[in-house]
Simulated scan of single mutants.
Amino acid sequence: MSRTHARTPLRTAALAGTAVLTAALTACSGGGGGPSAGGAGGNGKAEPETRITVNLTGERARPGSPIEVTLAEGELTRVTVTDSKGTTLDGKVSADGRTWTSVRNAAPGTGYTVEARDANGGTAKADFATAAPQKVNKLSLAPGKNSTVGTAQPLSIVFDHPVKDKAAVERALKVTTSNGTEGSWGWMQDWSGKDRVDWRPREYWKPGTKVTLDARLNGVDSGPDGGWFVRDYTTGFTVGRNQVVKVDLDGHRLKLLRDGRLVREVPVSAGTPGGEKASWRGRTVLMSKEGTINMRSETVGLGDAYDKMVDYSMRLTWSGMYAHAAPWNARYMGNANRSSGCIGMTDDDARWVYGQVQVGDPFEIEGADAKGTQALNNGYGEWNLSWSEWQAKSALR
């Protein structure tokens, strides 16, 4: 049952519980004390009763839809809806003044207080609560909050549980940029097997662009087996230097360009062509700078071919392709591809490249000595799609 409150003196409001929550708003008369709802005014006549309905009632109302407050006659002058955390919901009154609708959906497991006033001065107050979620969906965001990244870094969201209603989720994701950058969301299955959505600009970011994500997900149902979102998320980052790493697999060279100008060129030895040890080609993105790590061949399906501590490791794919120091392969650098899939450099060259690159920098890898183009979800492979192909992956297209 909803909880009701009466207000006195002068202006009183009575609420009556019906199939939908119903409140009567009564204005004071020109006579003495304020009458009750439907009571007699100073002239002895019963005052007209103005009634209001709220679409959600009780202690276990279903979340996920806007809160609507509707007046039977007259006009609403003010509606205030406050949740149990003290947050006031924004809303809009219809053109005829009779209905107020919240901008956001009612969130699960939340109590709400509704207060309304009509043009005649009548007031009403009502409380209701939404049912707690049986399952909660959460997410992880990349890049990190307040980070500075390269010009190819997408916004990337991976969800804990399946997202069946992708359109509803995508509508709740708002990207704002400091310079009106054009971009689009695209859905895929992450390398981990979870649902993922990325926001990619049409072209590489302009240096200095500030990007903000406001994920207004509280109260959004991700669909069967996914559960409800019970909070909002925000993150933001800044785009750093304009630089691109170009790798020529056939020429065995790596070039770092900044603002379109060559900074340095170094010899490399990439993956052995003709099998699973070959490197991927395509436009990829530097995912992380991991320093010295242990690389073991069995983790990438290559048996017991190697088990090494590797310096200056720069991750390019989830499947295990890195750029890194490979002094054991020095005799091949600049003339042959003889690694197990990674782009190897001398210690000195790898140290220099590692110090220059930013997470989010594009690595543009070309050449016939490859096993194919990097897959969309194997790291950040979206730059290998045309703009129209990428837009088609939005749930709102």
Rank of each mutant, 00 (worst) to 15 (best):
R3E: 11
P9H: 08
L10V: 07
T12H: 13
A13I: 05
L15W: 06
L15T: 09
G17W: 11
L21K: 00
L21P: 00
T22N: 13
A24V: 00
T26H: 10
T26F: 05
G34Y: 03
G34E: 03
G34F: 04
G39L: 12
G42E: 08
N43T: 10
N43M: 07
K45W: 15
R51E: 07
I52F: 07
V54F: 06
N55K: 07
R62C: 06
R62A: 15
E68L: 08
T70R: 09
L71Y: 01
E75P: 02
L76M: 09
R78W: 03
V81Q: 01
D90L: 12
T99A: 13
S102D: 04
G109L: 09
A116Y: 06
G121R: 09
K125A: 12
D127E: 12
F128E: 02
T130H: 06
Q134N: 14
A142L: 07
G150D: 02
T151I: 15
E170N: 04
R171W: 05
A172I: 03
N179Y: 01
G183R: 03
S184I: 00
M188F: 14
G193D: 10
R200Q: 11
T209F: 11
N218P: 04
G226A: 07
G226V: 06
F229P: 00
G240M: 08
R241S: 08
Q243N: 14
K246W: 02
K246R: 11
K255S: 14
L256N: 09
D259S: 11
R264M: 11
V268F: 04
V268E: 07
V268K: 05
T272I: 10
E276F: 03
E290F: 11
G291I: 05
I293A: 08
G301A: 12
L302R: 14
D304G: 04
K308L: 09
D311M: 11
R315S: 08
S319K: 09
A323D: 02
A323K: 03
H324G: 03
P327S: 03
P327Y: 00
N329E: 12
M333A: 11
G344P: 00
D347W: 14
A350F: 06
G355R: 15
G355K: 15
P362A: 15
D369S: 14
A375F: 06
A375I: 04
G381K: 01
S386F: 10
S388E: 15
E389V: 03
W390Q: 02
S394F: 05
R397T: 11
